[in-house]
Design a protein around this nucleic acid. Structure first.
Lengths: 187, 187
DNA sequence: TCCTGCTATGCAACGAGTTGCATAGGCAAT
DNA sequence: ATTGCCTATGCAACTCGTTGCATAGCAGGA
């Protein structure tokens, strides 16, 4: 399990409340680690009970009070220790790939619209990443360690989206080819 | 949930037992949809209860008997219906990316060995994919619909591994750069 | 001979993750 | 005035997924 660690990293980058963490997980971090607010609140309570993080009740006016969490020493140690452990194998769940293989037993043309929708959202995400890169890393020299590491993760996201776009074009070409020559209609 | 559907696709491509499915999920299908034998057995029982698949008890000698499952008509219908539904957003869990950002708060050099290990396993997987492509799709013309779709999914895997390898090299270069100039030691 | 490993299926318990709902004040628009 | 959205936290119930263990016959090697 590594949701604890993902939360810790986020809190190391900047302390925040459960609600704020949930929004971060919807945005930047959520691109490579998803979590709902329910999970986050539950794990925060456990982490606090374990002494990994410290809470500060912050009263606000005009909006509900919040609990701002920040990493405590045991949490930093746990993070450093986790870093030294081997990365667990990724559990991949690529639904679109399953559907593409499934299309062989149905109408391949029925997938075209879905793949195009997918393509658009990946194109939008790529544009979002590139805008973020221009905004946050305009000058790649003169970055500190934290920024350089954030940048290399962002570059991974960018390359992933580029590769995915090219592949989705390949998928669309294949589907169109099959739609033109419906060689083996279903029994 | 789509494990049912992933299993259905696999059974459409070829009927098989729970054990055989588990091995397929460890190999080809498991590259984009993981599942343990426990999950598979449980889901198979549910699918049979729902009438999606049919069972045939096969007695063997020299080895335990097995139950061979094959798709039934309601299963085919469910698959066709599922194909028409929009793909759910992927839940990404990219532990290595979290660790790379975490390295900012510890020793970036400690990650080098881990990233190299990762790199090797991706290189091995790429080689495996390429060998599979040469073996199964030596002549890309003259493939039927099912083979063309399997091929385009395989090409996706190949491109993913190539992109990942290039990115991991980028990560390694970044880590080495940081190790040479440990600019901001931790407070 | 014993130990390991493969085929084949399954139970039980646990932990992770999702979904629906509840509360509650403030703000903006209709 | 009411409706709906945002901030902020949380409970309860459920499903999904993992881990450890059990059974049981056969094959192969130390």
């Amino acid at each position: 399990m590594a949701l604890e660690h993902a939360i810790l990293v986020s809190l190391m980058e900047r302390p925040g409340s459960g609600y704020e963490l949930a929004r971060r997980f919807d945005r930047s971090i959520g691109r490579f680690w998803t979590a709902t607010h329910q999970q986050i609140y539950r794990v925060l309570r456990r982490m606090e009970a374990d002494g990994w993080i410290a809470v500060e009740q912050v009263t606000q006016d005009g909006r509900p009070d919040k609990k701002v969490y920040s990493p405590a020493e045991p949490g930093r140690l746990a993070l450093a220790e986790w870093l030294r452990e081997p990365v667990e194998p990724e559990t991949v769940r690529h639904e679109l790939a399953v559907k593409i293989r499934a299309a062989a037993f149905s109408d391949p043309g029925a997938l075209v619209a879905e793949v195009e929708r997918h393509r658009e959202s990946h194109a939008a995400l790529l544009a979002h990443y590139l805008a973020g890169e221009r905004r946050d890393f305009p000058d790649p020299s003169g970055l500190d360690a934290q920024e350089q590491l954030q940048h290399v993760v962002l570059r991974g996201g960018i390359e992933y989206e580029r590769m995915t776009l090219a592949w989705l074009d390949d998928v669309l070409a294949t589907l169109h080819r099959l739609a033109r020559t419906p060689s083996t209609p279903q029994d």
